[in-house]
Design a binder for these strands. Structure first.
Length: 609
RNA sequence: CGGGAUGUAGCGCAGCUUGGUAGCGCACUUCGUUCGGGACGAAGGGGCCGCAGGUUCGAAUCCUGUCAUCCCGACCA
């Protein structure tokens, strides 16, 4: 390929729309163009990268015994209603683009394909003899992100590989899950990415076991907490740790645990309270009021209690709330703080925010318009384990000292709700402390279990003749996101440094002076020789000055550059590795033999065996 | 959804306070000189100044509305 025929447009300045290095570089180097927020055109260079990533994914999925398919992107609402996800995906997080056709039929643009694939499986897979099956596709997915950003990282339209496996029993599912784990590690290694596998929340997809694959990078949107010994790594949404010990409350219980009033005028925050009375935050029970909104329209007030020095993990909270009320009210759409405005809209009395205690009376909700009449009360273990604590008295400017759960006549519903923090001691070894890294989620594997197959009545006949729902797994890789993550991990001040396995071309041949017939001829000769050897070559044949072509070459990030310049008359060329330092002057005749073994090795990425 | 900001040439921006009919850099076209790390000079093309309404003799500039885009937040009271 010649640069003059490539429709290459590079930018000298950073486009205003880009924030992070990979986004800026992909725009500047002419890989992508934005058409609308979160919607990008993949220009020819980018498409070559995406095809290479896809090919690696395809080869490893095929090797793991999966079958490639292509499923519809337009999906009938009906299917999503049967799985119970239509409302959650269109109303709540509103992540699904949906529309009506001329007959008024409702359709959605697929953000994922569990419903479609499960329907097909139910149709086609009738017997345990046909199992297990693992189907995958690589195609464009649609998600109406509230706030698309970072280019391909969080787009509204993006390329994804998604796979779905069907099994007769749980053990078979576990095998496929392990096989996908191995395949994923090979895929990321082959693409030249340093990735870590972390325990993850299963999120909106649901199910039991799940693991994310994170490309470590500063610009990552996720926080990973990991132990230095490498035995534990988890997304912060999911991470667990040992809390620090609480400092015992001097004086212990007062009034048998009912607590003694303490005047605390103007001390509405834990900080102020502690400063005013010589308390430690770990001696305080903090109360948060939130409202859970459900698919069926129900509004459920939540009263969440945490130890004063701990932070709420809202993903854990959402999971706990769904587990308790999801069956009754359908999908949890939203969690938000209860505000004076919300109380007023319900015609409820105002509450003494800043002075709330866990003993807040349900009767305060009695006159509400639409909310449930009582709080769902959840208590984190750090708070539940306090023998004697300080809490709000549910009266402005008043707290209680020396209260206890039994003394307040409460029976806490205890559930892990606290956010693990960097520096916390690890559960598996209290001598290890969690360290934080940022990561970009590029893959996620789930053991779904029988959630979708049950909802969609997708069953097969077992060996004994009974009918049972499939065991299912699902496995995703963000192909376009992976490509950008590679840039995020592999760039320098001058531009991109693609891992060779996914680079748009393997070698860039640059005649320093295109007007020099000797140089031009040698450059074309080398291009031909390399291509004969199966190497992907880009020739910069533009009549530009050498400096400009070098700058563009750095920006583009092609792993090897062959400069045909001053030495051309003596048959010598210069070889530069983009990610390396220095250069090598060698005879043009020796180039192919020198380069080929190196390129062959680099095509394997970081794969070790 | 809440807060903040910005819409002027393909891209990055100035001009707006103090109204007088649009400018700079990059990119693009032509010519010349250059030619190993984003050259220089000359000449040129390209704008409904986001959109709508208003004020005014006159609006990129002032007022109102609207649309769009970007950033921060959506969590501890």
């Amino acid at each position: 390929m010649r640069v003059s025929r490539l429709m290459l447009v590079t930018l000298r300045e950073d486009p205003a729309e880009a924030e992070i290095p990979s986004h800026k570089l992909l725009l500047r180097a002419g890989y992508i163009r934005r058409l609308a927020p979160g919607i990008y055109a993949y220009l020819p260079l980018m498409w070559r990268v995406l095809r290479k990533v896809s090919q690696v994914v395809r080869e490893e999925m095929d090797a793991a015994g999966a079958l490639e398919t292509l499923l519809p992107q337009l999906q009938p609402a009906d299917l999503w209603r049967r799985s119970g996800r239509w409302a959650g995906y269109t109303a709540g997080e509103g992540i699904m683009f949906h529309l009506q056709d001329r007959q008024g039929r409702e359709l959605g643009l697929g953000p994922t394909h569990e419903e479609v694939i499960t329907t097909l499986a139910a149709d086609l897979l009738r017997s345990y003899r046909q199992l297990p099956v693992n189907l995958y596709q690589i195609q464009t997915k649609f998600r109406d992100e509230i706030r698309p950003r970072f280019g391909l990282m969080r787009g509204r339209e993006f390329i994804m590989k998604d796979a779905y496996s069907f099994h007769a029993d749980e053990a078979s599912l576990a095998e496929a899950y392990a096989a996908m784990d191995r395949a994923y590690r090979r895929i990321f290694a082959r693409c030249g990415l340093r990735a870590v596998a972390v325990e993850a929340d299963s999120g909106a997809i649901g199910g039991s076991a799940s693991q994310e694959f994170m490309v470590t990078a500063e610009a990552g949107e996720d926080l990973i907490l990991a132990s230095p010994d490498g035995r534990y790594a988890a997304n912060q949404e999911r991470a667990v740790s040992l809390p620090t010990a609480a400092r015992p409350l001097p004086g212990g219980l007062r009034r048998g645990g009912a607590g003694e009033p303490l005047a605390t005028p103007g001390e509405a925050t834990i900080e102020q309270l502690c400063a005013g009375h010589g308390l430690d935050p770990s001696q305080v029970v903090k109360v948060l009021l939130l409202l859970a909104r459900f698919e069926d329209g129900a509004g459920q007030p939540l009263l969440v209690a945490l130890r004063g020095d701990q932070q709420l993990n809202d993903v854990k909270l959402a999971n706990a709330v769904s587990a308790r009320l999801g069956a009754e009210h359908g999908a949890l759409l939203d969690l938000s703080a209860i505000t004076p405005e919300l109380l007023a809209a319900q015609d409820l009395p105002q509450l003494p925010f800043g002075y709330l205690g866990p003993q807040l009376d349900d009767r305060l909700l009695a006159g509400g318009r639409s909310w449930a009449r009582g709080f769902l009360r959840l208590v984190d273990p750090t708070a539940a384990e306090l023998e004697a604590f300080v809490c709000g008295a549910n009266q402005t400017d008043q707290h209680l000292v020396g209260a206890s759960w039994s003394g307040l006549e409460l029976q806490p519903d205890v559930v892990d709700l606290r956010a693990a923090q960097p520096g916390d001691r690890c559960c598996h070894d209290a001598d290890q402390r969690l360290e934080a890294t940022r990561g970009i989620e590029v893959g996620h594997i789930f053991q779904l279990g029988r959630k979708y197959s049950t909802a969609m009545e997708a069953c097969f006949t077992t060996e004994t003749g009974s009918s049972e729902p499939f065991w299912m797994g699902c496995y995703g890789i963000g192909v376009s996101r992976l490509a950008q993550a590679a840039v995020e991990q592999h760039h320098d001040a001058n531009g991109i440094c693609w891992p060779l396995a996914i680079a748009p071309f393997e070698v860039l041949v640059v005649p320093a002076n295109a007007a020099d017939a000797v140089q031009a001829e040698l450059a074309e000769h080398l291009q031909a020789r390399l291509e004969e050897a199966g190497v992907e070559v880009l020739l910069d044949d533009r009549p530009e000055r050498a400096g400009l072509k070098f700058k563009d070459g750095d920006l583009l990030g092609i792993p090897w550059r062959v400069v045909v310049g001053r030495g051309a008359a003596e048959g010598r060329v210069e070889l530069v590795e983009r990610a390396g330092e220095g250069s090598l002057d060698l005879p043009a005749d020796a180039l192919v033999d020198h380069l080929l073994p190196r390129i062959r090795r680099q095509r394997r990425g970081l794969l070790e065996d």
